[in-house]
Amino acid sequence: MTDRILIREDHKGVARLTLNSPANLNALSDAMLAALQSQLDALAADDSIRVVVINGAGKAFCAGHDLKEMTRWRAQDDGGTASFADLFNRCARVMTGITRLPQPVIAQVHGIATAAGCQLVASCDLAIAADDTRFGVNGVNIGLFCSTPMVALTRNIPRKQAFEMLTTGQFITAPRAAELGLINRAVPLAGLEAETDALARTVAGKQGAVVRIGKAAFYAQVEMPLDAAYGHLDF
């Protein structure tokens, strides 16, 4: 790994984005969000890429926002209010950008995916996790409700299970995450990258234009009433 905070590697139509800040468990810091947004903007215009994989360097996928960075902002004249608002707005832009990216995005998850890290998994179109991964929206444990992770989480798993995670701060296992629909499946850590690559190659092997149109249609119709969804489809 280099000293870049986000590493992009392209291979046969698949772009792999590695969150490369293992010292803070690949936290979605100000710099990490900026790097992700830059790559999402570039990928949206790159017809050579058919699938994107997001993974984390070191012992974890992503531990959410950088709490040390946020604590420093408390010393600002406004108590950090403007910085927090900017951070959460840019985080929301990254998450919606993943959904709106023409290419399918696969999360390759290991270690932990907590708070905004869990939000990142939920925002990806597909997700495969090591079977010992833990997932949580645990901000309530330190006096912060995971409001923005809540948006993505409640669009992935049933409401009551999402509310329980949000209000108890308890973690769930990868097999449980698969049962709830947060991830597609859990696999042994030793086979995680190979399993993710196999899925990426399968999707990349389909007609790119068809998958792009299909992804856009999928997200457009899923929020519509039934009749409107059928009416939206262009045959």
Results as ranks from 00 to 15, higher is better:
A82H: 15
E223D: 13
G56I: 09
A23S: 12
D41F: 03
Y219P: 02
M70D: 03
L40E: 00
R16K: 09
A82Q: 15
I213L: 12
D66G: 10
E195V: 05
F145Y: 14
V203T: 06
S147I: 07
V121M: 13
A204Y: 01
V53C: 11
D132R: 11
P175C: 13
T154Y: 07
Y230D: 05
V187C: 11
G58V: 01
G80Q: 06
N89E: 07
T167F: 11
V53M: 12
A34C: 14
A34W: 12
L36N: 02
R201V: 14
T202Y: 12
V94F: 00
P104D: 04
F218D: 10
I49H: 01
A60H: 07
N26H: 12
I112V: 15
M1Y: 07
I128A: 12
D78I: 13
G79I: 10
A107K: 06
I128N: 14
A113T: 08
L182H: 11
S21T: 08
G97R: 01
A75Q: 03
P175L: 11
E69N: 10
A23L: 01
A186L: 14
A220P: 03
Y219N: 14
T18H: 07
E164H: 08
R74M: 13
A63V: 00
F163H: 00
C124T: 11
D86W: 03
P188Y: 09
A27Q: 05
A174Q: 03
A85E: 13
A34S: 15
A82F: 15
N138D: 14
N89G: 05
M224A: 15
T154W: 04
